[in-house]
C-alpha cells in the first residue's frame, strides 16, 4: 500500500470519526445534512458486501467495519438521539436524496466491470458516493455559514479525495494491469464537486466573510 492510499484512508477515517465524536460530545448536529449521511451509509453498506465473501487483509476488514459502524452511528444519532435530533436543520435539509439513488442504480446496471450482483453493487456505491455530498452542499448554501464542524468535515473529505487520486496515478504507473475506469471517473466527478466547494470556502475565508455559495 502506498503512502497516498494510506493518507487517503486516514483522512476519510478522520472525517467520519471527527464528525461522530463531535456529535457525541456537543450533542449537536447543526449544519450536518442527514440526507448526505444516509447516502454514505448506503454507499458503505453496498460497497462492503464483500466482507462476507472475500478476505483481502485485516486492515481492509477493520477499516470497512469502522466506516460502516461510524456512518450508521451518525445516522442513528441524527434520527434517534433525543438531544442531537433537536439540533438537526430539518427544514433546510430538503434535498430529495432518494432521487439520486435510482439513477445511480440504473447507471450501475448499465456500466459495471462485470454484470454480477456484487459488481453492480460496487459500481452503484461508487456512483452514489460521487454525488452523496450534494445535500450537504445545498444545506451549506441554504444556511450560508460554515462552522468549524462542517468546515473540518468537508476539508477532511476533500483531502481524502485528493490523496485517492494521487494513489490511482501512482498505482497506474507502478502496477501492471491496474486500470479501473469506473472508480477513476466517478472519483473525479466527486472531487470536482468538492473543488467547487473549496473555491467558495477559500474565497470567503480570504475575504473574512461568511461562506456564501452562488444560488
Amino acid at each position: 500500500m502506498n503512502m497516498f492510499r494510506f493518507l487517503g484512508d486516514m483522512t476519510h477515517l478522520f472525517s467520519v470519526l471527527v464528525l461522530l465524536l463531535k456529535i457525541h460530545t456537543i450533542k449537536s448536529c447543526a449544519g450536518i445534512s442527514l440526507k448526505t449521511q444516509e447516502l454514505y451509509a448506503i454507499v458503505f453498506a453496498t460497497r462492503y458486501l464483500d466482507l462476507f465473501t472475500d478476505y483481502i487483509s485485516l486492515y481492509n476488514t477493520v477499516m470497512k467495519l469502522v466506516y460502516l459502524g461510524s456512518s450508521l452511528s451518525i445516522v442513528w444519532y441524527m434520527r434517534r438521539h433525543k438531544l442531537v435530533r433537536r439540533s438537526y436543520d430539518k427544514d433546510q435539509d430538503t434535498f430529495r436524496h432518494h432521487f439520486l439513488i435510482l439513477p445511480c442504480l440504473i447507471l450501475a446496471l448499465l456500466i459495471n466491470e462485470k454484470f454480477t450482483f456484487m459488481e453492480v453493487m460496487w459500481a452503484f456505491s461508487l456512483y452514489l458516493e460521487a454525488v452523496a455530498i450534494l445535500p450537504q452542499l445545498v444545506l451549506l448554501q441554504r444556511t450560508r455559514n460554515i462552522d468549524n464542524l462542517t468546515g473540518q468535515y468537508v476539508f477532511l473529505l476533500g483531502a481524502y479525495r485528493s490523496f485517492y487520486i494521487l494513489n490511482w496515478i501512482y498505482r497506474y504507473f507502478t502496477e501492471v494491469h491496474y486500470v479501473h475506469w469506473i472508480t477513476w471517473i466517478s472519483g473525479l466527478v466527486q472531487t470536482l464537486l468538492y473543488g467547487d466547494f473549496f473555491y467558495y470556502y477559500f474565497h470567503s475565508w480570504k475575504n473574512n466573510e461568511k461562506l456564501q455559495l452562488p444560488a
Binding site: 477499516m63 470497512k64 462485470k114 454480477t116 494513489n167
Partner: peptide, 10 residues
C-alpha cells in the same frame, strides 16, 4: 459468487 475483480481499495 466471489469477487474475481481485485477491489482492494476502500
Amino acid at each position: 459468487e466471489g469477487r474475481d475483480l481485485n477491489h482492494d481499495e476502500l
